[in-house]
């Protein structure tokens, strides 16, 4: 039994004053996510990621199709006790402290009152908010709010965790912490379904990713599988000022800084280029594979317009 099963899920929003016009937010979507998997849901802003998550959370009703989580219907309270959800850019109740917030959510999840305090402390510990447990949330920074949000999503020890853009709005340190946290969740055998428009996060974490654009699924599979079809690139840096004819004839653009030269080439040209440098006795400084493999796939799938959106840092 898959942890999440989505069958022909479709959403059309009525738009306009008289609801005459309609906007298709989601083409019929089919997905099956296994238990214990970390699944990345990729796509530029407005691709339909949040819509899918909202349907799964029962916040928005699908126009057609069905979905099951842990084999149960989406409005089943027994299922809802076993999932956690972090919405995109949450704010929470300004006047509660982090501890009160978590207690409240724990009560709503029907947690055992005797264990609640202990579990709240554990969750605060996990997201490194123990020091601010008694501070009202209106005094929290954006990053702290995001962590409080993650704490409420994992507080009740759910089997499946849904995270909508968990890394957005975080500084590099915060992002690394969230990555570690997701890895820990995987270690505990939980299923994690997270959406992101930041490719490197997905590439580093996910067992599998799905790429969605304009409400349509464009590709699904393990990161390695997806990138296999796209050839990578390498960056070659050398010293000496000159550009060998062998490299120039490849048509690649050279950047120079003083007498240091830099060029980015398709992977298959790497050997020819190095050969040319050796022949000219130029001093090789570095050969680095450019880690944009998933991005390349992304660009290939969605076209360049989507690329600029997709790689822009999270807001």
């Amino acid at each position: 039994m898959p942890a999440i099963e989505i069958v022909d899920l479709e959403k059309i929003y009525a738009a306009g004053f008289w609801r005459k016009r309609s906007k298709r937010a989601l083409q019929p979507l089919n997905l099956a996510i296994a238990e214990g998997e970390i699944f990345g849901f990729l796509g530029p802003n407005g691709a339909g990621k949040t819509t899918t998550l909202k349907i799964l959370m029962g916040l928005v009703f699908p126009t057609a199709g069905t979905a099951r989580i842990l084999g149960m219907k989406l409005d089943d309270p027994r299922m809802k006790a076993q999932i956690g959800f972090l919405p995109e850019q949450p704010y929470f109740y300004d006047h509660l402290t982090a501890r009160e917030l978590l207690r409240y959510y724990g009560q709503l999840s029907g947690m055992d009152p005797k264990q609640l305090s202990r579990k709240v402390d554990t969750a605060l510990e996990q997201v490194k908010l123990s020091g601010s447990a008694n501070v009202q949330l209106r005094k929290f920074s954006k990053g702290m709010l995001q962590r409080a949000g993650i704490a409420q999503a994992i507080l009740h020890d759910p089997k499946v965790v849904f995270l909508d853009e968990p890394m957005s709005g975080l500084d590099p340190m915060g992002r690394r912490e969230v990555r570690t946290l997701i890895e820990e969740l995987k270690g505990q055998g939980k299923t994690v379904f997270f959406s992101t428009h930041i490719l490197s996060d997905a590439e580093a974490l996910c067992d599998r990713v799905a790429i969605i654009h304009q409400g349509e699924l464009r590709g699904i599979g393990a990161v390695a599988e997806l990138t296999a079809s796209v050839h990578g690139k390498v960056e070659i840096v050398w010293q000496g000022g000159a550009v060998p004819a062998g490299i120039r004839s490849m048509g690649a653009e050279c950047h120079s800084a003083g007498d240091t030269m830099r060029v980015i080439l398709p992977e298959e040209n790497q050997d020819t280029a190095l050969e040319a440098l050796r022949r000219e006795h130029l001093r090789l400084i570095s050969v680095v594979p450019v880690r944009t493999s998933l991005e390349d796939y992304f660009v290939a799938q969605l076209g360049t317009s989507a690329k600029s959106e997709a790689v822009s840092p999270g807001t």
């Binding site: 029962g58 009703f61 699908p62 069905t66 219907k73 989406l74 409005d75």
Partner: peptide, 8 residues
């Protein structure tokens, strides 16, 4: 499908 007919 999700709407609870009972509540309605």
């Amino acid at each position: 499908m999700i709407r609870s007919r009972q509540v309605t």
